[in-house]
Design a protein around this nucleic acid. Structure first.
Length: 646
RNA sequence: GCCGAUGUAGCUCAGUUGGUCAGAGCAGCUGAUUUGUAAUCUGCAGGUCGGGGGUUCGAAUCCCUUCAUCGGCUCCA
C-alpha cells in the first residue's frame, strides 16, 4: 500500500501502482470526468501514470492552469491528427498550449498554403476525431528509436528537436494515427474536448529565427462545453469594442495618415487634452518628489550616439542620420533622451551633497520599428516618453530604486491599474559577451534590483536573458483588452553611460567619483499608456483626465441664453464644457452625449433657468438631481481631488 | 522585413457565378418641430468601389503591381 496526501493535508492509503485517474474515480466518478492532469510529488503528469510510492497528489480540473494546459496541449495534438489526415506529408514543428488555447507550427510542404478559409474544414475533422474518444497513449523510447521514427516520417523539425534532447528522457504520445514527440501531460482521451474553434493562421519562423524557414502557425482554442466557447466568443466581441484604435477614432482622440507616415500618431484636440492632463499631473507629482524638469532637442549629433554606444548597436537598424547641407554634419533623430541628459549633467560640476539628481523630461523619441510590427498607439515610430534619469551615488542606488517603485505603484493605483505584472530582467548567464559593463557592476546592479523589489513587497517574476545590453531592469507590464501584454513602466540600472560620458561628482574626500544612472519611465510612452488606458476604461476616462468634463443640454431653444451663460461660467472656472443647442429632443441629446463619454450632462430648462441651477446627470449612471451652478463647480472639483488622492 | 488576410460615402456594412450594382443605416447639410432624462419628421448632398496597370464587348467583381490596414512571426535603446 502507498500513502497519498492531498492538498488539504488529508491522506489515504491506496494499492501500489494506482493511477491518479483511478484515485479520482474512487473519490467520485464525477470528479474523474472533470480532471485533466495531476501533480504527483510536484511533477505534472498524465492521469494514467501509475504511482509507485507514497506521494502528494493534486488533481487538476479545468479551473487550474495545469488542467487547461493539458486540455489545450492535447487539443493541439488533435489538430495535428486532423492536419495529417487532410494534408498527407505535412511536417510538424512545435505545438504548445498557450495562455488562451494552443497552436501548432506546421509545414504543409510542396507549395501548399493553409489559409483561414481552410480552418472550418480542419475544425470539422477535429470534431470527427474527438468524437471517436481515442486515448492519448504515452511511450518512452530511446533517442535512436525516436530519431529513426521521425526520420522515417520525414519530419526534419522533430528530428532536430530530438537531437538536442538527452537520451532516456524522450517520450512520445500518440492519438489515432498521429505520433508526436512530447513531454506531456495529456488528457486520457479526446472525450472531454467538446467545443473547438480555430482562431487564426499566421506565419512563424522555425524556432523564432528569421533566417530559418517560415512555418504556418495555426491557432485554436477548445473547451469542455459549448457554453464556454460561446462565452469566449462573446468576450472577444466585447474586447473588440474596447480596442483603443476603434475608440480613438470614435472619440476623435488620435489618427494616422499615410501621408504623414505609418506609425506616426497625430493627436487630435481631445486626445491631446488627455495627454496634457497626464503630463501636468505627473509634472506636479515629480516636482514634489524632487525631480528637475529639462527639455532637449529632437535630434542629436551622430557622435553623441557613437559616444553612448547606441550607434554601434542600433545605428544600422534605426532611422538613418540626416545631414546639414553645407558642412555635412550628421544628426540622428533622437531615439532616447539619456545622452542629452548626460550632457546636461556634465554642464555643471556636482557635489556628492546634491545627489541624487533626478532629471525628467517628456521627451519625444523616434525609433524605427518594422512595418509589420506597428500597432495603433501601442507600437509606433514616434512617441513621447515620460523619461527620467536618476544620477546617484552607489550607496543611494537601492533607495532610489525603491522611490521609483513607490512612484510607479502610486500612479498605477490612482489609475486603477491593478492587473499588472512586474518582471526583473537579468543577464543571459550563457551569453555574457553581448552586454556592456563589468562583471562586478552587473552583479551589484542585479542584486540591488532584486532586493529593492523585495523590500517594497513587489511581486516579481525574474527572467534571465531579458536584460538590456547596458544593465538589468525591472519592467511593469499590463494587458490590453484581449490580453496582449505591453510594457509600460521600466526601471533600468545603467553603469555604462556614466563611464562613456565620464560623469563625475566630487565626494566628501574631494576626489572625483563615478555616479550610477537609473533610467526610468512610469507610463513608458504616453502613446502606449493612453492606449492601455482607453482599453481599460472603454473610453470612459476618469474625470480628471477627461478632455471634456461636461456638456450643457438645453431642453429647447428658449433656454439657449441661460445655457450659454452656464457654459461661460463653467469654462471660466476651468471646467471644460460644451453645449449641445441643436434643436433636438432632450432624449436624443442625452443619448448622443452619453455615447461621447462626456462625464457630466447638464440638462437645463425652465425650472433651472428660473432659479439658476443645473440638472446633473452622470455618464453611465443617470440623474443626480439639481444643483446651483456654484455647487456643481465645487462638486466636480472635489470629485477630481478625490480621484487624485489615495 | 516575413507569412496570411482585408481595403466599397466621415463611420458601420450590403453588393449572388463579371452584364442598370454603385446601395442602406448612422453622421453631415436643409426645412419643419420647441421638445424634461439614451434615437422627432422632411428633403438634399456624399464614393474614379485604396492607387496604378492588365484581361474582357463589358470589372467593385478576374489577373499583376503598389500603398495602407488587420492577425501573427522577428525585433524593440
Amino acid at each position: 500500500m502507498i500513502k497519498i496526501t492531498f492538498p488539504d493535508g488529508t491522506s489515504q492509503e491506496y494499492k501500489n501502482g494506482i493511477s491518479s485517474l483511478e484515485i479520482a474515480e474512487q473519490i467520485s466518478p464525477r470528479l474523474a470526468k472533470a480532471v485533466y492532469a495531476a501533480t504527483v510529488n510536484g511533477e505534472v503528469c498524465d492521469l494514467s501514470r501509475p504511482i509507485n510510492s507514497d506521494a502528494t497528489l493534486k488533481l487538476h480540473k479545468w479551473e487550474d492552469d495545469e488542467g487547461k494546459h493539458a486540455f489545450w496541449h492535447s487539443s493541439a495534438h488533435l489538430m495535428a491528427e486532423a492536419l495529417e489526415s487532410l494534408y498527407p506529408g505535412i511536417k510538424f514543428g512545435i505545438g504548445p498550449a498557450i495562455e488562451n488555447g494552443f497552436y501548432y507550427d506546421v509545414d504543409p510542404g510542396n507549395g501548399t498554403t493553409i489559409t483561414e478559409a481552410d480552418l472550418p474544414v480542419i475544425e470539422k475533422k477535429m470534431k470527427e476525431f474527438a468524437a471517436m474518444n481515442l486515448p492519448y497513449k504515452r511511450r518512452e523510447i530511446s533517442k535512436k528509436d525516436a530519431i529513426d521514427l521521425f526520420t522515417g516520417k520525414g519530419d526534419e523539425y522533430k528530428t532536430e528537436l530530438i537531437g538536442e534532447l538527452e537520451d532516456g528522457t524522450i517520450s512520445i504520445y500518440s492519438n489515432g494515427d498521429f505520433v508526436d514527440l512530447c513531454r506531456g501531460p495529456h488528457l486520457p482521451s479526446t472525450e472531454p474536448i467538446k467545443a473547438i474553434r480555430l482562431t487564426g493562421v499566421a506565419g512563424a519562423y522555425w524556432r523564432g529565427d528569421e533566417k530559418r524557414k517560415m512555418l504556418t502557425r495555426i491557432y485554436g482554442i477548445t473547451f469542455p462545453e459549448q457554453k464556454l466557447l460561446n462565452e469566449y466568443l462573446v468576450f472577444l466581441e466585447e474586447a473588440k469594442k474596447r480596442d483603443h484604435r476603434r475608440i480613438g477614432k470614435e472619440l476623435e482622440l488620435f489618427t494616422f495618415s499615410p501621408r504623414v507616415g505609418m506609425g506616426l500618431p497625430l493627436w487630435m484636440p481631445k486626445g491631446s487634452d488627455v495627454r496634457q492632463n497626464l503630463i501636468s499631473y505627473l509634472t506636479s507629482l515629480l516636482k514634489k518628489r524632487g525631480y528637475k524638469i529639462v527639455t532637449t532637442p529632437h535630434i542629436g549629433n551622430v557622435n553623441l550616439y557613437k559616444l553612448s554606444g547606441h550607434f554601434e548597436k542600433y545605428g544600422t537598424s534605426s532611422f538613418q542620420p540626416i545631414s546639414t547641407p553645407e558642412e555635412g554634419e550628421q544628426f540622428m533623430l533622437k531615439p532616447m533622451n539619456c545622452p542629452h541628459h548626460c550632457e546636461i549633467y556634465n554642464a555643471t560640476p556636482h557635489s556628492y551633497k546634491e545627489l541624487p539628481l533626478r532629471m525628467a523630461e517628456f521627451g519625444t523619441v523616434y525609433r524605427y520599428e518594422q512595418s509589420g510590427e506597428l500597432h495603433g498607439l501601442t507600437r509606433v515610430r514616434s512617441f513621447t516618453q515620460d523619461d527620467a534619469h536618476h544620477f546617484c551615488r552607489h550607496d543611494q542606488l537601492r533607495e532610489e530604486f525603491k522611490n521609483i517603485i513607490d512612484l510607479i505603484l502610486y500612479i498605477f493605483k490612482i489609475l486603477n491599474f491593478n492587473d499588472f505584472t512586474a518582471q526583473i530582467s537579468l543577464r543571459d548567464p550563457d551569453d555574457k559577451e553581448k552586454y556592456i559593463g563589468s562583471e562586478e557592476n552587473w552583479q551589484k546592479a542585479e542584486r540591488d534590483i532584486i532586493e529593492a523589489a523585495a523590500e517594497m513587497n513587489l511581486k516579481t517574476v525574474v527572467v534571465p536573458g531579458e536584460a538590456a545590453f547596458y544593465g538589468p531592469k525591472l519592467d511593469f507590464m499590463v494587458k490590453d483588452a484581449i490580453g496582449r501584454k505591453w510594457q509600460l513602466g521600466t526601471i533600468q540600472v545603467d553603469y555604462n553611460l556614466p563611464e562613456r560620458f565620464d560623469l563625475t561628482y566630487n565626494g566628501s574626500d574631494n576626489q572625483k567619483h563615478r555616479p550610477v544612472m537609473i533610467h526610468r519611465t512610469i507610463f513608458g510612452s504616453l502613446e502606449r499608456f493612453v492606449a492601455v488606458l482607453i482599453e481599460n476604461t472603454a473610453g470612459k476616462f476618469p474625470l480628471w483626465l477627461a478632455p471634456e468634463k461636461a456638456v450643457v443640454l438645453p431642453i429647447s431653444d428658449k433656454f439657449n441664453d441661460y445655457a450659454a451663460n452656464v457654459l461661460h461660467i463653467l469654462n471660466n472656472s476651468d471646467i471644460c464644457t460644451l453645449i449641445d443647442d441643436r434643436s433636438e429632443k432632450i432624449g436624443k441629446k442625452i443619448r448622443d452625449n452619453e455615447l461621447k463619454r462626456i462625464p457630466y450632462l447638464l440638462v437645463i430648462g425652465e425650472k433651472e433657468a428660473e432659479v439658476g441651477t443645473v440638472s446633473v446627470r452622470r455618464q453611465g449612471e443617470g440623474d443626480k438631481g439639481t444643483m446651483k451652478i456654484e455647487e456643481f463647480i465645487s462638486f466636480i472639483r472635489s470629485e477630481i481631488k478625490k480621484e487624485l488622492e489615495i
